[in-house]
Design a protein around this nucleic acid. Sequence first.
DNA 1: TGCATAATTTATAACGTTTTAAGTAGTGGG
DNA 2: CCCACTACTTAAAACGTTATAAATTATGCA
Lengths: 340, 340
Amino acid sequence: MRQPKNKRPTQRTIAEKAGVSVGAVSRALANDPMMAEETRRLVHRIAQDLGYVPDRAAQRLRTGRTNVIGLILPPHDEILEFGTSIVRGISEALLDSPYHLVVMPDFSGDGADDTIRRVVRNQLADGVILSRTQPQDARIKYLLEAEFPFVTHGRSELATPHSYVDYDNAQFACHAARMLINSGARKLALLLPVRKFTFASHLQQGFMTAVRESGVAHAVINGVNIDSDAKLLESELRTLLTQEDAPDGLVLPGETSGIAALAAIQDLGLVPGKDVRIVVKQTAGIFDSIRPRTPSIGENLLEAGQLMAQLLLRQIAGEPAADLQYVQPAIIDERYIVNP
Amino acid sequence: MRQPKNKRPTQRTIAEKAGVSVGAVSRALANDPMMAEETRRLVHRIAQDLGYVPDRAAQRLRTGRTNVIGLILPPHDEILEFGTSIVRGISEALLDSPYHLVVMPDFSGDGADDTIRRVVRNQLADGVILSRTQPQDARIKYLLEAEFPFVTHGRSELATPHSYVDYDNAQFACHAARMLINSGARKLALLLPVRKFTFASHLQQGFMTAVRESGVAHAVINGVNIDSDAKLLESELRTLLTQEDAPDGLVLPGETSGIAALAAIQDLGLVPGKDVRIVVKQTAGIFDSIRPRTPSIGENLLEAGQLMAQLLLRQIAGEPAADLQYVQPAIIDERYIVNP
DNA sequence: TGCATAATTTATAACGTTTTAAGTAGTGGG
DNA sequence: CCCACTACTTAAAACGTTATAAATTATGCA
């Protein structure tokens, strides 16, 4: 059907032009120290002139390395907040590496993930990045078992250490709760995903720390389908806010839930920041422009993406996974600093 | 460093077990009709048993096809709205095809794009998808010249037809302007990107149609850096709204600009929907939860992604690009239907 | 039975790279 | 002048697949 007008140059082309063997060209290009400086330079020059670029498929076939990093994208609408910055972060970190980012959407259910099995068995990538970890994450177990390089966004509670980048959700929830209490809220609620992600227990733990130290009586932890779209969240929040002993302070671990909460509060005729106070985790950065203004605590997902890519590359290069762990601090807005 | 505990099976393994040649296995697996039904089934069964999966690198080296679709992601924060749904749409459409999606961030400037050159010359993909087209888009010219399969999000004004999926921005802008006029606005403004994207002129054209037919005197078309983050947009909008003859009706081609506009309006002590009316293009779907409620017109980016992937696959299969074009209608909210 | 023809299958050659083992020079020492 | 050694280079094999041409077996028909 289609074919390139002039076949692109191979090492063979260079070899003929330079009057050396293909093997020599290969090593010269790889900067093998066994190579005479003179021929090395000659080969490089000719390669440059011809616009030679190595054939990925051949390299991959020969070496077994794919030069691909896989990103397992979670299902549902959560990626609205999550995916964009992460994808950008990873892409940027991979820019001057020989690696490409391949996005692999994960439509499988809870269990050991089909997508990941496919990647490992089909050698689709040299390493993967996955998110939304659970305490006993079957995917992580599988990857550890298979000795396949990976980095997660979020920790697990497995015995074997693995590489991860996580956000300090405990710190976030603790600080958020304190902010609410200090500004007068007395009946707190924390919104959590219904599924048992590791970060949920961190949120809970941080939240309870603040609650206990302040002696606030009413504190509920509410599981909602936090990954669902804003409309569904809205209605769940309306229910929460109209029941008996409805909270007057909400800790919201995401911008979508923040926006949904503001909608629910206002739709009920209540005043955000007065009748119901909220603190939101700002992930995508748009929340600063939402009115009425409400306090938020930031999470740098772009950086998270960059970090995960870097950690993964180092792991592929051979560093032990146990050394490749990072917890991002919560980014606390100066305007809302509270004394602990 | 790492090596699979038990080497994965190849066609050779199957061939030995089945007592046939490798070539036979290859054709049996490809369901070549030249193959006896009996051996075909035998080979398939053994392959199944061994958990055989073909080696992508070898296939690629041999056939020259990469089985990769490249998505050229635009720079800046625009992807917040754009990227997520598009990525999901493409991924979904590719699910039961042999193709993978590779995300390629594009950090180059305006001119003929480095990223695209790299993809074409290095055979990094069998086809690419790119967005934010310009009337005389250098990237498109290059791809046409190279006869490389591609689909764009947005049209161009080049003589040679190419495959695209576009949103009917003229219809959007026209209808949005009518809605504003019908609800009482008399000084309209349309927000446009400063860079000359094709969709900008469609917006302008639709906008002017509505303006002319209504005889509204004040209608400005305002170029802003629509891709910048919400904060910057806010300040640009504050400027617009405080100048002499400030508009009382805004057509906003995106959720980010919609949110920024609401912030700017309210920060100036004005009432959205009364002092200044707005109509927003809803792309990511979150805008429905923004308060105060304002009318919006939808764009289905998930579908756009799916369509682009489908068109690209058909093009790679050999269909002429001129037949692979699609314009998505504006999704008009029933609640705000206006008579033309 | 013999022979052309069809129906399968096989052997072989690529694809472009890396790597291993085997070379060939060039150098210095005896 | 030969040997051993270093310094570089090459020839050849391999990675797993597909495609081409050749070979084998089966089938049909006289």
